[in-house]
Design a protein around this nucleic acid. Sequence first.
DNA 1: TATGAATGAGAATTCATTCAT
DNA 2: GATGAATGAATTCTCATTCAT
Lengths: 207, 207, 207, 207
Amino acid sequence: MSKLSKKERIVLEAKKMFAQNGYAQTIMDDLAQAADVNKATIYYHFKDKATLYETLFLEGVQKIADRVIEQTDEQTHPQEKLAVYIKVYATSLQECYHLSSILLREIASGGDSMPSSVLAQLLRTTKRLTEILEMCAEKNGGVCYEPMVIQLMIISTLSSFITTKPIRKRVKEELDSSAPTLPALKLEDIAEKLTFMIYASLQKGEK
Amino acid sequence: MSKLSKKERIVLEAKKMFAQNGYAQTIMDDLAQAADVNKATIYYHFKDKATLYETLFLEGVQKIADRVIEQTDEQTHPQEKLAVYIKVYATSLQECYHLSSILLREIASGGDSMPSSVLAQLLRTTKRLTEILEMCAEKNGGVCYEPMVIQLMIISTLSSFITTKPIRKRVKEELDSSAPTLPALKLEDIAEKLTFMIYASLQKGEK
Amino acid sequence: MSKLSKKERIVLEAKKMFAQNGYAQTIMDDLAQAADVNKATIYYHFKDKATLYETLFLEGVQKIADRVIEQTDEQTHPQEKLAVYIKVYATSLQECYHLSSILLREIASGGDSMPSSVLAQLLRTTKRLTEILEMCAEKNGGVCYEPMVIQLMIISTLSSFITTKPIRKRVKEELDSSAPTLPALKLEDIAEKLTFMIYASLQKGEK
Amino acid sequence: MSKLSKKERIVLEAKKMFAQNGYAQTIMDDLAQAADVNKATIYYHFKDKATLYETLFLEGVQKIADRVIEQTDEQTHPQEKLAVYIKVYATSLQECYHLSSILLREIASGGDSMPSSVLAQLLRTTKRLTEILEMCAEKNGGVCYEPMVIQLMIISTLSSFITTKPIRKRVKEELDSSAPTLPALKLEDIAEKLTFMIYASLQKGEK
DNA sequence: TATGAATGAGAATTCATTCAT
DNA sequence: GATGAATGAATTCTCATTCAT
């Protein structure tokens, strides 16, 4: 059933580890152990650590880009396209959970070391977002400012939400123990709020 | 004037390098070279790499917390408090630019490895934000959900904006060369939009 | 015609690589690639790397030994035998060009790691050389000192000449570009000079 | 007295090992052990294995070049210059015994991988040899052919003689046990014979 | 206050070889 | 005959840290 090939096990564990520990602190020895393969087996399947990283990164980003483009195509109204854009990003990032960490770290580095293949995929979605934002703006008589910034806000907000789930829980338990527990926000709520805000910012009169 | 002491040079370069490369990829050898001091000199001034990191991190976060608390105190209206909260965060992160990268990376790691002294400072501002949000909610008859998530959205959005400035510029030049240059969003615009959105989300009727 | 079997391709490329890079720096992976066979195929045909090396080495040395012995047998005068000995070595080394490199490297290592089967073949020729030198010495009333040293001088001089042909050409072009090109020495000239010198050294009175 | 610094010990042992085992089979771990230093100490003093190799190689070749040039300067007659040239090469190679192996191996590789700094030093002596040979040729009314080939003959003959001393002894004991031991040739004898032969080859009438 | 020398504990990568098919 | 997958045993190189001066 769940009989994964060695290569698949490597990929699976690598995703976990790169997300959990980052690139540098992901140790090939540990990865081999976690995937229950010999260290050399990793090198049989992937040229080196950087290539492994890029492969996983690219694969994830590509999947997101494909989905985003496909599903926004299916919508007709600009606002719906925007909502879907953000929602698909949200669910995809949650599913390929390792991507959130990786993207945030790349953003932290200013994106300098992002493989160009990955950047290209991200820009596919940025292009789509630009189209959507322009449609929205046109419809509302507003103007669309720097879609790349909007893109960034979407990705970083959703990703932070995903990666910090454990610590948020821990902190809340430690600190708010006495306070009445507030209703928890879910990822979909965040997505909705983002949609609302971005759409609103494109209204006529909004600076 | 610009005659910095060795210790100051270490601190200066360390900020740059931790921000640019992250903790693990910041190499003490390189730092020594960049600061033009002997490697052992770093260890004369700082116990070890982790301490150096924490020192810089804590110093920055503390400064932000102090400012945020002080300046929100000066405001009377809830909405103004919120606006100032976000604006002070924005300007402080821009000033201590290395903090943006560092915070994003900690977020990427889920915050697990964040020194508790740093976390304490961050929570000081989270507490203040909670108070502000509650005031706003109360005034508007709305409800405030998980201030920590709002906090996260503020920090990650502002930080991403700051850290990606260079790459955004580069990408725009490469891709949009023909397109009419859209008005550039400035950090203050982002801060304002965030304020607007967060405030709006606390209105009565907003889910 | 030029359709070589896999085994032949392996042998062909192995000769090139052992000659070019030496034993240790010849990598089985590279060899497989160069021969356009799967790595395991090499092991199907040859027990291991050492065996492959020895096979090629022995084959070449044996061929030389056979030729040297056969052709010196055909001569009657000692001096002619000597001339033929050296000439056959020269032409054989040039033909099995990879042997020159391999022999030089073995000499560089002091011959310690030379397979004994190979050494045995070499000694067949050394024995023949000894006989020839003794004949020459006897005829001239001189004495023959350490034929092994003479053997070494012959092999190393001829081999160096063969292996360095490309670099000699390159250096000459870079440096002597202005100078009048001197007549180029050919391998046969070297062989003749060696013969002359060795014979002369066996004259009476020559120390 | 013989208190060598760690760096000196590394250099000393490295010379031995590169000569004995060649570049690839010289293991940094073994070297560290032989020099009785920590592995990392080697890397503190030398960038990497290749740099260590080149350093030693260059240092040795430079010393030879300096000596050869200085001592041939002191001679006045062409033939004496030639004799000194060869003799200094002989004694220097014997003294810096590791160079013989290294040079032979480089020759075996066709000189392709010889660092250009080393090549430059070798060419200094080749230039000097060219001058000497031209003087000799002029005096004798003969012609000088390709000094580089002469150079090669000198180096490879002397070097082979030096590197094979142990095996020659061993083979002689195993094989010639019954035969009357012939007078052993010494390095100086080889040097003299080379001088004689090369000089003779420059006589008028000699092709 | 500062540093050149040194090191222990890793960590990435390589490579000859094997084995099931 | 041939090969894709896999691996054990190295091997090079790195890096935070220490120490004598």
